[in-house]
Each structure stands twice: as structure tokens, then as C-alpha cells.
Write a protein that binds this DNA or RNA. Structure first.
Lengths: 146, 146
DNA sequence: GCCTTCTTTAGAATTATTCTAATTATCGCT
DNA sequence: AGCGATAATTAGAATAATTCTAAAGAAGGC
């Protein structure tokens, strides 16, 4: 029987993006990324750790931190910080804002037109050159389709 | 000689705003607030502590945290969080955004037209009701007037 | 197959913040 | 002025989030 390469359950882009930065694709990195893609609720490092552990019981929290940091470096994931509290991770790379529900504590992605981000940057006084804009809303979401 | 009330060096609003919330005006609260108003570089609690200590050597870090939290509760100060790292404090109450200079690490206030904030909120999908928007730019500021 | 480099790991260390219990200050009342 | 109730501050311990360190484990190139 010939050796079979198991089909990759993880997005094709990952290995490539990592390689672009001279980094290797590892089971840990793949799984952490997969977990982020699967449940997009902006988990903390601890939460990612909990979700990853059943699949890869030997993994350590430090590794989860390492992997997350690596994914951020490779532009596969964004780190977001709301008020005090742990950093959260978001695999949505399209330009979008975050809506932080003050009641449930949940964070929702809100797609906004690219033009809005451009417009915002254009409002900056001369001398300021922004390469990123972050927008965070805070309030109540009475989800119609709940 | 009659007892003289020393002229308050701190903004008149403070005592009033505190009273509105059933809180007292204390030397610690006044000084912490004054320090924030004097150097508006978005200091951390530790930095505020360092600035306050020469004036009030007995003050404790816990008190600085308490005072800052109190000021935030009274809507005299805003707490801002950029990426990981300690919370920073900002006494600018006008609607504004923050520009985080990636080179120097400094944070600048950027006044934006109120209309922009309104417009942003109106872009939210139905069901989302925001009572606050935070905008953070990230990039390089080649300050013309430096 | 060996050497180098990259990665992961466990645990210690660091940093930021909050909590706790005791002390001190202030306010209103008499 | 004196007293009791409440509010605020304090020092230090406790917690939470993250980073660091040093050692062990994997992978790739020759």
C-alpha cells in the first residue's frame, strides 16, 4: 500500500502564507487556525487553548500564544482588544468593524464599505499617515434573527 | 486673619460632577484629574502614579486606580485600550479618534466632525444600536510642527 | 544518517489590575 | 465640639494575562 497524504482539513492558504514568511506548517498552527475559522466568536487565547486541547492533548498554552502571534504576523488573523481584558482573535480579513454587545459581552463582525475606511483616513490632518483603522461600536444588539 | 479658602487649581467641573454621582472631591481625585489635564499624553495608571507622587507622596497605586476608575464613571475621563498593554486615560471628552504612532508609540487625539460618528452609526445593520464608537488609526505621524 | 534550524513544551517570571481588611477622613447631626 | 455613619485611602496579597527561559523534540537539507 502506498503512503497516502491525508487530505488537509485546513485552508490551503495557511501553509503557503507561513512559507512566505519562512515558517513551517505544523499541526499546532494548523489546528489553532482551524479553530479560529470554525467558531468565529473572537475567542481569547485561553478559549482557543480549550478548544484545541481535545484534538491535541499535549499542546501547551504557550504554544497557543505562539501560534496566534505567528498567525497575526502572517496576516492571517487579527488581534483585537476591547477595554481591559484578554486579547481576542479574529480570522476575518475583510475590512470590517466590531460591535461589542454590552449586555451579552459578545463581539460581532460588522462589514462596512471599504469607501468608509478610505474616507476616514482622508479626514486625518496633514502629517498623519494611517495604514490601518480600527472601528469599535459599543451598545446593544437586539438580534432580529436570533 | 480670617480663614481663606485656597483657590482651586483644578477645574470647577470636577467637584460638581463627583457630587452628581454622590461622590466626594478629595485631594487624590483632584490631583489625578489635574495630572491628566496637564499632560495629555494618554498616560497609564503607573505613569499617573509617578506624576502624582511628588505632590502627594503618601498616595498609593491602588488609589490611583480607584481615582481613575471613578473619573471614568463620572464621564470626566475616557479609558482607552490599544493592543495589549495597560489601559490609558484621556481627559478629552469631545468626540475624537486616536492616532497611534507605530514608530514613537505615542498616541495623538484627532478631532473628527461629529457628523462622521453619526454617519458611522447609521451604517450599522438593523438590530444594532450603538451608543459609542471608537476609532483608532495606526501608522506614522511625520509631525510637520515638531 | 547527521547537523542545523525551527518549534514546542513546562514552568518560572513579569506585568497589569483587582481584592481585602484595616485605617483614616469627612459629613451630618446634636 | 463631639459622635456615629459612611466614604475613601492604604499596603499588601491575590489574580489574570502574557512573556520568557531553557531544554527537549521534530523537520529539512545535504
Amino acid at each position: 500500500m502506498s503512503t497516502l497524504t491525508p487530505p488537509p482539513r485546513h485552508p490551503a492558504g495557511l501553509a503557503q502564507k507561513l512559507a512566505d514568511s519562512g515558517l513551517r506548517s505544523t499541526p499546532q498552527r494548523e489546528l489553532v487556525y482551524e479553530v479560529l475559522l470554525t467558531k468565529r466568536d473572537h475567542p481569547t487565547a485561553d478559549e482557543v487553548f480549550a478548544r484545541v486541547k481535545p484534538e491535541l492533548p499535549g499542546i501547551s498554552l504557550a504554544t497557543v500564544y505562539n501560534c496566534l502571534e505567528t498567525l497575526v504576523q502572517c496576516d492571517l488573523v487579527r488581534a483585537v482588544n476591547f477595554e481591559r481584558g484578554p486579547t481576542r482573535y479574529c480570522p476575518n480579513l475583510r475590512p470590517h468593524a466590531h460591535f461589542h454587545d454590552e449586555v451579552t459581552g459578545q463581539t460581532h463582525d460588522v462589514d462596512l464599505p471599504e469607501t468608509l475606511f478610505t474616507k476616514l483616513k482622508s479626514e486625518l490632518p496633514p502629517g498623519f499617515d494611517a495604514n490601518a483603522v480600527e472601528i469599535t461600536f459599543r451598545g446593544k444588539a437586539k438580534s432580529c434573527a436570533n
